[in-house]
Simulated assay, not measured.
Amino acid sequence: MAEVTDPQLRLFIERIQRLEEEKKGISDDVRDTYNEAKSQGYDPKIMRQIIRLLKMPAHDRKEMEALLDVYKCALGMEQMSLPLGVAA
């Protein structure tokens, strides 16, 4: 393999390699944290869903939850929840 002779390219490659190593380390830390939470009785799958929801803008999350309620109701999975006073 030919040696990289462009010093700027070499710096970019080395920087990317360092960042990839850091990313792997962070990924390992996240996995360890989920495992620690699991050992304390928490469900990592649910925690991942919560993290995903927290990343969403509030209006997108509310819209998704409303649609989920509509779909569950349409499938008979649960009653559509009505605000107080609406059913009266």
Rank of each mutant, 00 (worst) to 15 (best):
P44G: 01
E21M: 05
S27A: 13
Y42W: 08
T5S: 10
A88Y: 15
Q40I: 01
K38I: 00
A58E: 12
K45A: 12
D60H: 12
E63K: 11
V4M: 06
A66T: 09
D32Y: 04
K62Y: 12
I51C: 05
D6A: 03
S39A: 12
P44R: 05
I51Q: 10
E65H: 05
I16N: 09
K23P: 00
S27N: 13
K38P: 01
Y34N: 04
L82P: 01
S27T: 09
A66E: 08
Q49W: 08
K38F: 07
P7S: 07
P57L: 01
S81K: 15
L82N: 09
E78M: 09
R15I: 01
R10N: 05
Q17E: 15
T5Y: 06
A74Q: 14
K62M: 11
D28H: 07
L53T: 00
L67H: 13
L54R: 15
R15F: 03
T33N: 03
Q17S: 13
P57K: 08
D60E: 15
A88W: 13
N35G: 08
R52M: 04
F12A: 03
R10I: 06
A2F: 08
K62L: 13
I26F: 15
Q17R: 15
M1P: 00
L84P: 06
E22M: 04
L67A: 04
Q49F: 09
R31D: 06
Q79W: 07
P44W: 05
F12K: 11
E14Y: 02
P44K: 06
L54H: 11
R52F: 05
L11F: 09
D6Q: 04
T33L: 12
E36H: 13
K55E: 10
Q79P: 02
P57D: 12
Q79Y: 12
V86K: 10
I51K: 11
A66W: 09
G76L: 03
K45L: 06
M56G: 01
Q8K: 10
E21T: 07
A66V: 05
L53F: 10
E21A: 14
Q8T: 11
E3A: 08
I13F: 04
S39P: 02
M56R: 07
K55S: 08
E36S: 10
R48T: 02
G76Q: 05
G25C: 01
I16Y: 12
S39D: 11
L19P: 00
R10A: 14
A2S: 14
P7K: 08
R52V: 01
V70E: 14
H59N: 07
A58R: 14
D60A: 08
I13D: 05
D6T: 05
K23C: 04
I16C: 06
M47D: 05
S81C: 07
I51P: 00
R18Q: 14
S39C: 01
M47H: 02
K38S: 13
R10P: 00
E20T: 02
R48G: 00
R31L: 05
K24C: 00
E78S: 10
P7R: 08
M1L: 02
